[in-house]
Design a protein around this nucleic acid. Structure first.
Length: 282
DNA sequence: TGACAGGAAAATA
DNA sequence: TATTTTCCTGTC
């Protein structure tokens, strides 16, 4: 299998560990300090190369340096983003400091939609397990360093799965959401949606069974790269109450977060999520 | 081993 | 329109 190596300048403000483990994505594998990550039709091996750069090996086809930078949020003007969040919410200064290195990833929206439908009322390790099982069933195997990894399945591969296959995922009440999703949507649907504005995207996502406000905001942020999206899960709910005294329905807290933080609310969300999970408070 | 964690949809008021 | 109930699996 062909393999290419890239060295990417990152500056001092990127952490692959924080970025990849912060609940944006689930199917990474830690191998001797490097992250092995299935991306589209390839496998990426990402190593932190020290102060100034990271090195990325691409195993298999279909990932160039431009896509990798986009995937990892390395094109974001992080100094500017942090400055704007700090101006709008000075209370978050220590969270921004501690979360330094976090970036918003841009994963394929089709994959993100299924991933976050799987995430409903489920912990991260369970989401990962089920997504890996689905990928083993319908994705392409790539052997690397004595282990077989799997790409995320295409819509056409998923449509070939039997009822028994789907039942073996043990995803409970989410199974009917997955079945309907596979039947009705494909990568092209999301490709077309990517050309629409924020509100159109959100409304279209909310039409999908199994996607409510929180999951829609996750797909907007981690799939479409809409940096003003603000997913509210139980951790963000607690953080928003603690820091700003804001509580209520998910929709209400989402709107409040987008109002407070503006264009880069998604980054503020990641900083809060990272901090409260690490320390139990903000 | 029963309590608990984790969002969306449907039912209810 | 806003609140309450129901739906599952995995973990400890």
């Amino acid at each position: 299998l062909q393999s290419k190596n890239f060295r990417i300048r990152k500056g001092k403000n990127f952490s692959i560990e924080k970025t990849i483990t912060c609940g944006q994505t689930f199917r990474y594998d830690l191998n001797n300090g490097d992250y092995i990550y299935p991306y589209k039709k390839s496998l990426l091996e990402i190593s932190d190369g020290g102060d100034e750069s990271i090195s990325v090996s691409v195993i298999g086809e279909d990932a160039n340096i431009k896509q990798i930078k986009e995937l990892l949020g390395l094109n974001d003007n992080i100094e500017e983003i942090n400055k704007e969040i700090l101006e709008k919410a000075p209370k978050l200064s220590h969270l921004i400091e501690v979360g330094k290195g976090l970036r918003i990833m841009r994963n394929p929206p089709y994959e993100m939609a299924i991933s976050f439908i799987f995430s409903i009322q489920t912990s991260i390790p369970t989401i990962r397990k089920r997504l890996n099982l689905l990928s083993e069933m319908a994705g392409e195997g790539i052997e690397y360093k004595g282990k077989v990894y799997h790409t995320f399945p295409t819509s056409s591969a998923l449509r070939k799965l039997s009822q028994t296959d789907l039942a073996s995922l043990h995803i409970g009440f989410r199974e009917r959401f997955l079945k309907e999703f596979i039947e009705r949507y494909d990568e092209e649907f999301f490709e077309q949606l990517s050309k629409q504005d924020f509100n159109k995207k959100r409304e279209a996502l909310l039409e999908i069974k199994g996607i409510g406000e929180k999951v829609a905001q996750c797909v907007l942020l981690f799939g479409f790269g809409e940096l003003s999206a603000f997913p509210v899960d139980v951790w963000i709910e607690r953080a928003m109450k603690e820091v700003f005294g804001i509580s209520g329905s998910t929709k209400k807290i989402t709107e409040a977060g987008r109002q407070i933080f503006g264009n880069f609310a998604g980054y503020a969300q990641q900083y809060m999520y990272y901090f409260i999970r690490a320390f139990g408070h903000c």
